[in-house]
Amino acid sequence: MTKDHGPSIKNDEKYEALRRDGMSKTKAARIANTPNSGKKGGKAEKYEDRTKQELYDQAKKVGIEGRSKMTKSQLIDALRNS
């Protein structure tokens, strides 16, 4: 049975799976709270093909700090390593 982690975690099952895999609480929460985080399909547009604003908006969704001062390439790196 999945534990209820409260309103701050949107997908408790995904969060617990990520924590079992050794992910930090912060990173697991960020991923578990991202809409469609569990869906697969490989149809997402490549980061390099997105605008800086689109990358900024995605960084905002996942809670990357310092995003307002980042260049496009820095946003891509932050998104890939968050």
Rank of each mutant, 00 (worst) to 15 (best):
K69R: 10
D57G: 01
R30D: 06
K52W: 02
K61C: 03
P35A: 00
T71Q: 12
R50T: 02
K46H: 07
K39Q: 11
K61N: 05
E13V: 09
N36F: 13
P35E: 00
G41V: 09
N11K: 01
G41F: 10
A28P: 03
S73L: 06
I9N: 01
E65V: 08
Y47G: 03
M1H: 15
Q74M: 05
K14M: 14
N33V: 03
T26I: 15
M70N: 02
I64S: 02
H5A: 07
K52P: 00
I9A: 00
R20N: 13
E16V: 08
K61H: 05
G66F: 02
S73E: 15
D57M: 04
V62I: 15
M70P: 04
K3W: 07
I64N: 02
K69C: 03
P35H: 00
A32W: 00
A17P: 03
Q58I: 13
G66D: 02
I76H: 05
D21N: 09
I31R: 02
R50W: 04
D49M: 04
S37Q: 03
I31V: 05
A59W: 07
S73G: 02
H5I: 05
Q74L: 05
L18R: 06
K25W: 12
K27M: 15
I64P: 00
A44V: 11
K10T: 01
K43M: 14
A59Y: 08
S37V: 04
L79K: 04
M1I: 15
S68W: 13
G38C: 02
A29R: 10
R80Y: 11
T71C: 11
E13W: 01
L55F: 10
G6W: 05
V62Q: 10
M23H: 12
P35L: 00
A17T: 12
G22E: 04
K40D: 12
G42M: 01
V62H: 08
K52Q: 11
Q74R: 06
L18P: 09
A17H: 07
K40Q: 12
E48D: 10
S68Y: 14
E45K: 15
